[in-house]
Amino acid sequence: MSAFLARNRLIVLAYAGMVVLLLVTALFSPGFLSVSNMRSTVVLAAFVGIVALGQTFVIIGGGIDLSVPWVLNSAAIVMALLCGGQDLPLVWVMPLLLAGGAFIGLINGVGVAQFGVPPIIMTLATNVILQGLILVLTGGSPTPSAPALIQYLSVGRIGAFPVIALIWLALTLVATLLLSKAAFGRHLYALGTSATVAEFSGVPTARTTILTYVISGLTAAFAGMLLTGYSGQAYLGMGDAYLFTSIAAVAIGGASILGGSGHYLGTVAGAMVLTILTGLLPALNLSSGALLIVYGAVILLTVSIGSETFAGLGGKMRRKES
């Protein structure tokens, strides 16, 4: 474990940042550390965290997924439409939509890995296409309310714990196993560090790339369904905020945006930091415009501290090589 910490200083830093932020927030808003408030913070962070899970894999592999907002939104709206407020259809609707999310990821991955389309263009295009499809499908009219079962998954509790927090925990475990304990993880880090070296070492680079986008499609679609339960309803634009937050959570969590490093455990801290920040800023009594400015600035600052530390280490290493 200590070796893990030594190699992942930036992740430790992210958790330290989270704790500091918690304490600062508690100073400005004394009720913040209450059990109920922590609970709702974790619930909100879980949505970011689940979307950012797929994003973590994509970014470690050296790509980026800009299609998450409308994969999320599409899953939310189609689920609401197909279920019509009933629980029973979920039996087939959920698997269908997860498969749908995976399929969008497959398209992204094949475009990037087989046809050489730059990830930004590829995923931006699928995002816009999905947005168009959904507008055609709904004609802009509101959807039926979310099935009760989905609402339970996102706001319900088992004992003291929110159900979604437990789901998040389980997903974190799976992601950690994939990254640290599976051959896929090794291949992924190699791919993100140098696609050429990975290729020359016999790593199945295309398959690995495609898989990251598939995972990202899956988690975005899953998050879309859960978020519908949280809001009680699906609506247009509900995924938009998750483009920025999913990438920011990965970056705050210590991953290099260029790929090859990072871990989902860092992203978890990143998701928490972002969510605590949205709790802190209103306590400062700023206007909503000023709030966004501060929010953006703080994220920029956090990420740049991380990358500066990283650049410092990189520089030292380069010099030592000679």
Binding site: R186, A190, T193, S194, V197, A198, G260
Partner: peptide, 19 residues
């Protein structure tokens, strides 16, 4: 450029092809 992951460990480089 083709042989080594410079920012990864000796261990990870050695076992990459046969992980």
């Amino acid at each position: 450029g083709q042989g080594l992951l410079l920012t990864k460990s000796v261990r990870e480089n050695l076992t990459l092809s046969v992980i």
